[in-house]
Write a protein that binds this DNA or RNA. Structure first.
Lengths: 194, 194
DNA sequence: CGATTCTTTGAAAACAGTCAATCTGTGTGG
DNA sequence: CCACACAGATTGACTGTTTTCAAAGAATCG
């Protein structure tokens, strides 16, 4: 269980975290299982947890004025999930985070993270690398949003995150891309003819 | 000149950086003036610099297959500008960064940043806070992109960054929002009737 | 199998983009 | 100071794309 996290830290930092340092890390996390359709965090409340996904699939989404869901982020094995804004600023979250598959998490809190960053240099480094990667990925997604056609957006999704395309239903992929399910269905049909 | 940077560090860290620590910071930056329409970084080359804007206004944009510019980021006083992906990963940049107004910068390099983070804990903390803020802002922008109407996007821009709306021409604002200038013009006209 | 969830399809409407022309304001050089 | 050039904004007519709404078809799960 914790080994997935250990490997993740090693891969992001390019080092081998030793047993004593990893004990600190381990101690800051609580295993938790979330069944499909259960929530890690709700719209309107402060997102108290930051979680590492050991197994399963989750989504973070907002519900707009018309009642339509918009998925801002997917998470699968070896991804982190949380509402970063709510978690860090302690403000009420706009988002819901729930499980799309039964999911095993390693959960931690803001206080624990603060401690961890002092106690474990490698965890600290990992957090930094993660922030950087997240920002780069977000920037690329913004670029796609403002400059790509619907088809190009889907093509990029298949290329960058084929695992999402394999595991999440098409209506959720459409939501993630800012399209309606009908539009994505038609686009995929068109793509067959080329 | 350097005082703007000093104030920025203080405000982001919630501390007062002392003279000796700030000397390290100062030493890592070179002042540079970029006239309107001149470039800080070009598409295809590695973005070597990360710059703090002391005065002026810049933009970071990509040119798509059809030759259309798409602005992914604006920068004005007290903002940082760089292609984070290219700068950090040392990969060729997709973006151009140029000055929209004559601009005064404090410029630094990747090596200098690495040094700085060791030498100055407050600079390190600032970088961390900045990364976090950037990611949160990017996430919010993605949400707007996938869930807002064109009018709502512009409304949010006016609310969050009125200074951009004041200083950049409407065709650039349209580009930033993923709209054509004509569409934004018509939307603004409609907004007058409500 | 029955219920639910997801996907596909069709037709109409809303929306945004394109192209071309005109208008407006600004600044520059004669 | 004026005339002109230039960049940006607006408008109109048209085209194309995406959404909406409704219905029918698959697929999945208990």
């Amino acid at each position: 269980m914790y080994n997935a996290l250990r490997n993740f830290i090693n891969s992001k930092t390019g080092s081998e975290i030793d047993d004593s340092e990893f004990q600190f890390v381990e101690a800051a996390f609580t295993p938790r299982v979330i069944k499909k359709k259960q929530f890690l965090s709700h719209e309107g409340s402060i997102c108290q947890y930051m979680a590492f996904i050991v197994k399963g699939a989750m989504r973070q989404y907002v519900i707009d004025d018309r009642g339509v869901e918009h998925i801002v982020r997917f998470g699968i094995e070896n991804w982190w999930i949380s509402d970063r804004e709510s978690f860090s600023m302690l403000t009420p979250s706009k988002y819901n985070i729930d499980a799309f598959e039964d999911t095993e998490l390693l959960v931690t809190t803001k206080e624990k993270i603060t401690l961890l960053k002092d106690q474990s240099p490698l965890f600290f480094k990992m957090a930094h690398v993660l922030d950087e990667n997240n920002f780069i990925a977000a920037q690329n997604r913004i670029e796609a949003n403002i400059s790509f056609t619907a088809e190009e957006k889907f093509q990029q999704l298949m290329k960058l995150y084929p695992e999402f395309v394999r595991r999440f239903p098409q209506n959720m992929l459409a939501s993630y891309l800012g399209l309606t399910p009908e539009t994505l269905s038609r686009i995929r049909k068109q793509m067959l003819f080329r």
